[in-house]
């Protein structure tokens, strides 16, 4: 008997709590799964959180990470999207606080030019080396032809 009442109370309490969550969530532009109601915003949210590094785990995006800080940063991104901030503004926000490290795709500037330029520089150096080697070799007599000649 008393157990039945307790269960009923617990059920009602759960319903009230769920209701409150729903109201709070919907008032923030989120549905009951924590997704943004606007699908375009949700798509941007998913893209942006894939581009930001979790500062705690460092090799995970904030979309993938279970760290509490990642959850808070995801929430921050959601709130900024709802507030109508542009992608660039969100990246600027994160970069101003956590530095370039937070971006998986660091911008091209004086400090990162080496990283961006190194592959091209190496390709150029390699090309010059190959060119010079080939040019020297092409002037050499072909050994096997000489050997083949007299026989």
């Amino acid at each position: 008997m008393s157990r039945g009442v307790g269960a009923e109370l617990a059920r009602r309490a759960a319903a009230v709590i769920a209701g409150v969550f729903l109201i709070v969530a919907s008032s923030q532009g989120l549905d009951d799964h924590g997704q943004l109601e606007n699908p375009a915003l949700q798509a941007r949210y998913e893209h942006i959180t894939q581009q930001l590094r979790c500062l705690v785990c460092q090799n995970e995006t904030i979309a993938d990470s279970d760290a509490e800080l990642a959850a808070e940063l995801r929430d921050e991104v959601r709130q900024m999207l709802i507030a109508g901030k542009s992608d660039a503004a969100i990246y600027r926000f994160m970069r101003a606080r956590y530095g370039e490290f937070v971006l998986y795709d660091p911008p091209l500037d004086a400090r990162t030019i080496f990283i961006w330029g190194a592959p091209f520089a190496l390709l150029l150096i390699g090309g010059i080396v190959i060119y010079r080697v080939l040019r020297v070799r092409s002037r050499m007599p072909l050994d096997d032809e000489q050997e083949a000649g007299p026989k």
Partner: peptide
């Protein structure tokens, strides 16, 4: 408790 001030300070640990 929401960590919002910490985010503004760039706190990560």
């Amino acid at each position: 408790d929401k960590g919002r001030v910490a985010i503004n300070w760039g706190v990560y640990g």
